[in-house]
Structures are given as structure tokens and as C-alpha cells.
Write a protein that binds this DNA or RNA. Sequence first.
RNA 1: GGAGAGGUCGCAUAGCCCGGUCUAGUGCGCGCGCCUGGAGAGCGCGUUUACCGAAAGGUAACGAGGGUUCGAAUCCCUCCCUCUCCGCCA
Length: 424
Amino acid sequence: MLDINLIRENPDLVRKSLEVRQMDVTPVDQVLDLDLKRRTIIQEVETLKAERNAGSKEIGRAKDAAERQAKIEAMRAVGDKVSALDEQLREVEAELTAVMSWLPNLPSEKTPYGVDESENVVLKSAGQLPEFDFEPKPHWEIGPALGIIDFERGVKITGSRFYVLSGAGARLQRALIAFMLDLHIQQGYTEKYTPFMVKTETVFGAGQLPKFTDNLYKDHEEDLYWVPTAEVPLTGYHMDEILEEADLPINYTAYTPCFRREKMSAGRDVRGIKRGHQFDKVEMYTFCKPEDSPAAFEKMFADAEETARLLGLPYRTHQLCTGDLGFGATITYDLEVWAAGCQEWLEVSSVSNVTDFQARRANIRYRPEGGGKPQFVHTLNGSGLGMPRVMIAVLENYQQADGSVIVPKVLRPWMGGIEVISPM
RNA sequence: GGAGAGGUCGCAUAGCCCGGUCUAGUGCGCGCGCCUGGAGAGCGCGUUUACCGAAAGGUAACGAGGGUUCGAAUCCCUCCCUCUCCGCCA
């Protein structure tokens, strides 16, 4: 959510931000209009309420019955006006919130202009692309051949885009999760195990509602959503709280499965495990003071990079341009790892500085040391790498001519002595 | 899922039966000051948040949302949560 004061005082800045995101600017005028209506009604209704409060007190003190009755009649009239205006105010405020909740965050001045993802800026490449003296296979061949990915069973149990990991494959994923969590803990994050189902307010706070309704799974009976990312419950963790400045920054890491309907991407990336309705991910999340968020952003991205580096995966990084920037983000770096089999760079991490956008929605503030008004915190989120895609890269880059796959050294502590995954 | 109890200003509580003097008393905690060689005790003052307003000031919030009323922490309804017991269950 944007600051209504900012929109009121600097509407051109907000229009500009919508333009660079290639979005329609008319909501800005709607907001200005509704905001004016709102404030007009508030002034009117609050004057009447003050009158009613004073009048009601007099009634309490009034001795003369006739005078008292007259006053009651008068106040009843005032009360009716108040009710009518309150109703109007509710409507205007609901409308205002509705429009506001669709406005994206303002891009940072450090985010380069661009129309769409083709204009994202390359930051760097790191690591050596693996070389093979044979034709490297895609994971959808490696996995089934090794008996560690079972597409048919997934489809049988649930439907298309679902799969089962078996034996060393399932274990490999568990190793990845454990490796990442332990690494992030070393990097200064506190592990959280959160609910995987959350209520509407929580999804709204993280900025996934109302815009991404179509991508969420929902239990309509209980009015609960399945988390599309750990970012959602981690944002909600401090919802409606006032944190102490001394406690900031707060860094969390969490493993969760992620559930996405992906209606919009139907038909894309259907082969293999690249894009499913359910996938596992380890997330990093930070709450900090506004002035600290640029540095926290660089740190979090460095932490994501370290994850790829330790796994020995060649990667490259991008900065998203304004046209490709996510809804709540002001600035985003993406990290892609190379997958030798499908010959593709796979996006495995996206780190964003969300500034106070989620903090406003979720009402997360901190009290400055030495007192003063509570301020909104800044929040940042980043994937500590999405599991299936990292798994793809590991399987495809570490494959050998005989069809076996070498287990990266950093994962071996969790593999129970398995150094090479061989056909069963 | 059933029965009962309860949710009030950081914490603990009073107020609710009998609606107005209650944004709300008290204790603890916390902050500032006095006192003291210093500390403690003691004393004094202060100690939620949001919104509207240039300001003065005003409005709102006693789990949430509705209702009754001139007026609701207080009465009525719905929902949520916590605790105790029962049922069921990994």
C-alpha cells in the first residue's frame, strides 16, 4: 500500500511510477477524488458527533423533563444525520481502499527503465559452465531413468504437473532444504516453521491480494489460503505489531511448500519439474529500519548467491527493469542457474526490497529509540533458492555418461553416505 | 464436535448485574524530576494508537462485526480467540 499522504502531495510521482511499470495511471485520480470526498465527510460527521456527544451529556444532567425531551428529539435528528454520513463514509473508504490496494509500489530510482523482461540488465556471471564428452540429458530423462522422479505416479495421484520424488531423489531435496536452512542460519537468519495455510488478512498484508487471487489455492469452507510463498506467513508474523528499534533488523528463514494455481502460465514449461502447482522453497525475510534496507538488500542477495556458489552451480544475475518489477518491489535482483540438460538458465531466486509497502498493508511498525511516533519498517524477501529448479540444475550439471549423478559435496552430510546416485 | 469460564490502556486487575460523572480506576513495569555521598526506599509528574484539522481542538478504538439508545466497556445478536472438562484423532 502506498502512503495516502504521498499520493495527495505528489500525485505526479505516483503517475510516473505507474507509467514506467507500463500501467494505467487513472487510479491516481480516482484516489485523489475519493480522498477528498472522504475528508470532507469526516469533517462534517465529526462536527455532528461532537455536537451529539455534548448534547447527550446535557441530557444526562438535565432536570426539567420537558427540556430533556426536547433535547432528546434534537439529538435524535443529529444522530440520524450521523448514521447517514457514517454510511457514506464507509462506502467511500471501502472504495478508496479498493483502489489503493491495486496500486503497486514505487520503483526505486536505482531500478532501470524497461518495457518488459527483455530489458532486464545483466549484472554478472559466475562459475564455470559444465562440459561433457557426451550429450547431457534433461532431468525429465535423468530422473525417471534413475528411478528418483516419477511423473506418472504424480499424475495418477493428483493430476498434471504433479510428480513424486523417490528414494535418493526425495532425499536429495530434503538435503537441499536442510543445507539451505543451515546456511541461512549461519548467515544470520532465524529459522521459522510457519503455518502453510493463512487467512485473508495475512495474504493481503503480503500484497498477494487482491491482485493475485487467481493464483492462490483457497479452502472456501474455512476461508483459508494455501501459502504461495513463505513470504506470506513471514510478513504476517509481525502483523499489527510495534517492534523495538533495538530488535531490528530481524532476519528470518523458512522452509515451506508453495502452492500456486498458475492459471496464467498454463501450457508453459510443462515438461519436467520446472513449474508445478506445488513446490518447495527456502525463503529469507528481513524487517529493518528504512535507512538500512538498501544495505540489507545487497546482503540478502549476496546470501542467495552464496547458496548457488556453494552448490557449485554456474549462475548469472539480473536486475529487473521497471516493466518487469513485481507488485510490491522497488528493486529486484534475479539469480538464474544454468541447467546443462535442457540448456536453459533457470530463475531460482528473486530478491526484493519492498520498503514500507507490505509494512503498511500488514501494519508493522517500530518504535524509534528514545521514543517518538512508531514508523513503518522496511521489509525484504528473497528465495534462498527454489527447490525443483535447483534440483534440475544439480541433476543436469552433475550427470555422468553412465546416467548416474554425483551428489554435490555440500549436500553429502544429509545423504547418508550416498556420493553418487546410480540407476537402481 | 459438545458443556462451561473468559477476552478491558506493556503486564496484572477494577468497572459490566443497576447505560451518562469511563479512554477508562488501581497495582506492577517503564521514563523524567526531587531527595541521596551513591543506590534503594519515598515523593511528584508522565506513560496507547489512528484519523480530521494551519492551529485551537475534535473524532474513533474496552477481541471483531452488527443492533438497541439522545448516549454503550456496560444491554441484545453473530463471529473469532484463550482456558477447563468431555468426545474424536496423527
